[in-house]
Design a protein around this nucleic acid. Structure first.
Lengths: 150, 150
DNA sequence: TATTGTTATACTCTATAACTATA
DNA sequence: TATAGTTATAGAGTATAACAATA
């Protein structure tokens, strides 16, 4: 007799639905991201903001939000958090006094580099089964879904 | 002169990170799912439960949760919701008096079928750019990430 | 009038710890 | 001692509406 192995229940029609697998895979990656960067206190969304500000010094909050699909209202707390931690510099824009110009502080640049190194290790770990070509193929497929944003 | 087109800011290194694209694509699909099924009141997770119960009549809550990656504690409210709506029948298990045996009511079977039809339309709409082969390839790639669940 | 940032608020998903009743 | 379900609670992401200041 073989060992009695506790098998997991069949999820039914879900297994053929892209949305289901997207959710599951995203949760796995998000959980590993959180573990891998727990020491830094930087979460996925926060790193997103850091990345956009790093690439576009002087950009304003609204533009960051639009590029990441984050609502203006939700940007406020995120930027507050980064400013309070000393990672982002926020000053009234010279061209538009309603807007804030965001940029990374020196500390922010260090944190960004540190996080990026950890994220690369995390992706290599959680995507270990996928080679470079497969990862690119995956990103290409996902990008075509993202383009459907309403 | 060409029209002044408002272009979105470059997201920087994010564009090469699988985790970022997973999050964005998942959010796009989830938002479209919510719109497409708003009349039914059935959310992604709820349909997940319906699908597992449909496939495994008499299954208990814990097993449903394990198969979907949902914690026991979080299953309670979900099953309560489905029972209160009359979609799921919950009765003490004959074999184990600690457990509940779950199954779909007739109304639950109708709701399941109705939701599934809407979900197929939703996936065809939000994944319209991907042909069958590409969707399968995507699911295969995602499944390999899911397998990394800790 | 439209836009930037803000506040307030609500909903959902996920996570942990501690409890009970059964096994 | 382990498991099924429960309760309470907390953190995080996302969504909408309304407001003040500025364009």
């Amino acid at each position: 007799m073989a060992d009695e192995v506790e098998r997991e229940a069949d999820v039914g029609v879900l297994s053929a639905l892209v949305g289901y697998h997207l959710r599951r895979a995203t949760n796995v990656v998000a959980a590993d991201f959180a573990r891998s960067l727990s020491e830094t206190g930087v979460r996925q969304v926060l790193f997103g903001v850091l990345s956009v500000v790093e690439r576009n010094p002087g950009i304003n909050q609204g533009s960051v939000g639009r590029s990441l699909g984050i609502q203006r209202a939700n940007m406020v707390a995120l930027v507050n958090e980064l400013v309070e931690r000393g990672l982002v510099d926020r000053r009234v824009s010279a061209e538009d006094r309603r807007a804030f110009a965001l940029s990374l502080t020196d500390e922010g640049k260090c944190a960004y580099a540190d996080c990026l190194a950890r994220i690369r290790a995390h992706e290599d770990s959680v995507l270990g089964d996928l080679d470079t070509r497969e990862r690119k193929r995956l990103i290409a497929l996902l990008s075509r879904i993202e383009a459907k944003e309403s």
